[in-house]
Simulated assay, not measured.
Amino acid sequence: MSLTATRIHADTATVTVASQTAAITDWSARYFGPWWNAAAADDPGPGSLADGGGLVLADVDPGRVDDIAALVADCGPEETIYANARTLVGRADGITYAVQPEERIGYQANGRRLVIVGGELEPVAVAAARLARELVRGQLLADGWTVLHASAATQNGDAVLTLGDKGAGKTTTGLLLALGGWGLLANDRVFVRPEPDGRVRVLPWPSAAALGLGLLDATGLYDQVREKVLAGGQLHPTQHPTVTQALVDDRREPLWKDTGKELKPQFFPDQLGSWLGLTLATEARAAGLLFPTMSPDAVPALVENGRTLTDADVFDQKTEDRYPDIFDLTPTTATGTQALTEYLARLPRRSMVLSHDTNASAALLTKTAEELITTR
Score class of each variant (00 low, 15 high):
79 E>Y: 09
98 A>H: 07
118 G>L: 02
35 W>N: 05
113 R>K: 04
41 A>F: 06
50 A>P: 00
96 T>L: 10
117 V>F: 02
35 W>A: 12
38 A>G: 09
74 D>W: 09
37 N>T: 10
100 Q>C: 06
51 D>S: 15
45 G>S: 11
54 G>N: 05
56 V>N: 03
90 G>C: 14
95 I>Q: 10
78 E>Q: 13
39 A>S: 12
44 P>G: 06
101 P>I: 05
53 G>V: 01
113 R>E: 09
64 R>V: 04
58 A>N: 04
70 A>N: 07
78 E>T: 15
89 V>M: 06
108 Q>I: 06
102 E>L: 12
95 I>Y: 05
111 G>Q: 05
66 D>K: 11
42 D>I: 15
113 R>M: 07
112 R>T: 13
42 D>Y: 10
117 V>K: 00
75 C>A: 15
39 A>G: 08
40 A>G: 08
107 Y>D: 05
62 P>L: 06
32 F>Q: 01
60 V>D: 05
71 L>C: 08
47 G>T: 05
44 P>A: 07
41 A>K: 01
62 P>K: 01
70 A>T: 12
118 G>P: 03
114 L>G: 02
114 L>Y: 04
33 G>R: 01
113 R>N: 08
102 E>N: 09
39 A>L: 02
91 R>E: 15
97 Y>H: 14
64 R>T: 05
63 G>W: 04
44 P>D: 05
85 A>G: 06
56 V>G: 04
75 C>G: 10
70 A>Y: 06
36 W>N: 04
85 A>M: 13
111 G>K: 02
103 E>T: 15
89 V>T: 09
117 V>D: 05
93 D>W: 08
62 P>A: 10
79 E>L: 10
78 E>M: 13
50 A>I: 11
91 R>A: 14
82 Y>S: 12
118 G>K: 01
117 V>H: 05
106 G>I: 04
92 A>R: 15
100 Q>Y: 03
86 R>C: 07
74 D>G: 13
101 P>F: 01
64 R>W: 14
50 A>R: 07
99 V>E: 06
92 A>P: 00
48 S>E: 04
46 P>W: 12
77 P>R: 08
81 I>G: 03
85 A>K: 14
79 E>T: 15
84 N>Y: 12
85 A>E: 13
67 D>I: 00
67 D>N: 07
53 G>I: 04
103 E>N: 10
97 Y>C: 07
101 P>S: 01
119 G>M: 00
68 I>H: 08
79 E>M: 11
57 L>N: 00
65 V>T: 10
66 D>F: 08
101 P>G: 02
108 Q>K: 08
75 C>M: 07
96 T>Q: 10
106 G>N: 00
49 L>G: 13
97 Y>I: 12
106 G>A: 05
75 C>S: 14
